[in-house]
Simulated assay, not measured.
Amino acid sequence: MEMRQIRYFQCVAQELSFTKASQRLHIAQPPLSRQIRQLEEELGVQLFERLGRSIRLTDAGKFFFDKTMQLSARLDDVVVATRRIAESGKKWFGIGFVPSIMYGFGPTLFRKMRASGVQAEIGLSEMTTVEQLKALRAGQIDIGFGRIALDAPDIAGLTLLQEPLVLAVPAQHALAGRRDASLDDIADLSYVLYPAKPRPSYADHVIGLFEQRDHRVSVAFEANEMQTAIGLVAAGLGVTLVPSTVMRMQRDDVVFIPLNEPEFTSPIVMSWLKDSASPILREVVALAKQTAKEAP
């Protein structure tokens, strides 16, 4: 599938006429029709209904048009940003992060970066810790903030914080009125684990915490996103463990209970390529250390 085919499809969908679309695109109608047929064959769906001399989008065509228009708009933004970086002479600095750091550490660090005047165009990408490893090696990001340490010879890592874990339960749960809970209280509960993939992940960290105390986690459901896991908890489908900063999330249908288990923590781990000589990376690493030191 080529961008040219998608652009042709969008034009035909907007005009609902091969004749008008070919005039607008400045190409002959037969090659345009061929491109649309090839696109339909590649997708394995019919995008247009041919009604005599008129056409209209099928339901699949409407969906494809909506989504490709969103992609095109995003691509246009990327093109504009790329030109802006080239014209300004600024460097681009990519940061990968897991969503759970955005309840405390992440926003504080990013504010410090803006206040310090880091001389770079900052790109933020939400991704799991394992995805950060691939992105670091591919040069897609310059630094990652995750929940597990990356065991790789080419990656430098530093644990910035150890956040206590808290138990998230439905508002009607038997433990919802408790000020705190112990391992004995939570060991036999049914859990919603996240992320389900890719592994290893924070889910394996949670499983490991129980196994170190000779307990096995009973998994009711797995989710790929923390927000989804908390939603499943709200629905009464299980409980889950989340970093304590997530308690800042205001929900009426979920209660967060601190644990009387000092070992039940989750690290925030900073990772970067060992051979990177970027001065911006050194500046961001220093700011991250300062942010962690000042964390409550």
Results as ranks from 00 to 15, higher is better:
F105S: 06
I6D: 01
T19I: 12
R178M: 12
F93T: 10
A135S: 15
R53Y: 09
E15G: 00
V130I: 11
G236T: 06
G96M: 06
G44H: 02
L124M: 13
Q132E: 14
L160N: 07
F9M: 01
P279K: 01
L109Y: 02
P31W: 01
T291I: 08
T128H: 08
L193K: 02
L189T: 08
T128S: 15
L32I: 09
E42I: 00
P279L: 01
Q212N: 14
I55W: 04
V130D: 02
D76F: 04
R111K: 15
D154G: 08
V192R: 05
Y191Q: 07
S190K: 14
V269Q: 12
R83Y: 08
G157D: 03
D76K: 13
S190L: 07
D185P: 05
S88E: 05
D253L: 10
A168Y: 10
L161I: 14
A288R: 03
L209R: 10
L232C: 03
W272E: 05
V255T: 15
R213G: 03
R114I: 11
R53D: 10
R147A: 13
R114K: 12
L25I: 01
Q162F: 10
E225P: 00
Q290R: 12
L193V: 12
T58P: 03
D214V: 04
E163V: 11
M249V: 08
P296F: 09
S218F: 06
G117A: 06
A286P: 04
A28S: 15
R53V: 08
I148N: 07
Y8N: 09
S266L: 11
E2R: 13
W92H: 11
A277N: 13
L167A: 12
S201Q: 08
F105T: 02
L161S: 01
R251H: 09
V233N: 06
L47T: 02
D151F: 03
F48M: 01
P243Y: 08
G236S: 07
V45P: 00
A234Y: 07
I230D: 05
A181W: 06
F48C: 01
A81Q: 13
T68S: 15
F256T: 07
R4D: 11
T245I: 00
D151I: 11
R178F: 04
L43S: 02
I55M: 01
P99V: 03
G208A: 11
M102Q: 12
P267R: 10
S125M: 10
Y202V: 11
E131H: 06
R147I: 00
E261M: 14
G94K: 05
R83Q: 14
V130S: 13
P279C: 03
R213Y: 09
S182H: 10
S116P: 00
Q35V: 02
A288S: 15
A171V: 15
I280R: 04
F105Q: 09
S88F: 01
L183C: 04
G157I: 08
L32N: 07
S266P: 00
R74C: 04
R282S: 14
V80H: 11
I95H: 04
P262T: 05
R137Y: 06
R56V: 02
L71M: 13
K274R: 15
P164W: 05
H173M: 11
E222N: 10
I6N: 00
T108Q: 13
S182W: 04
P267T: 09
L259A: 11
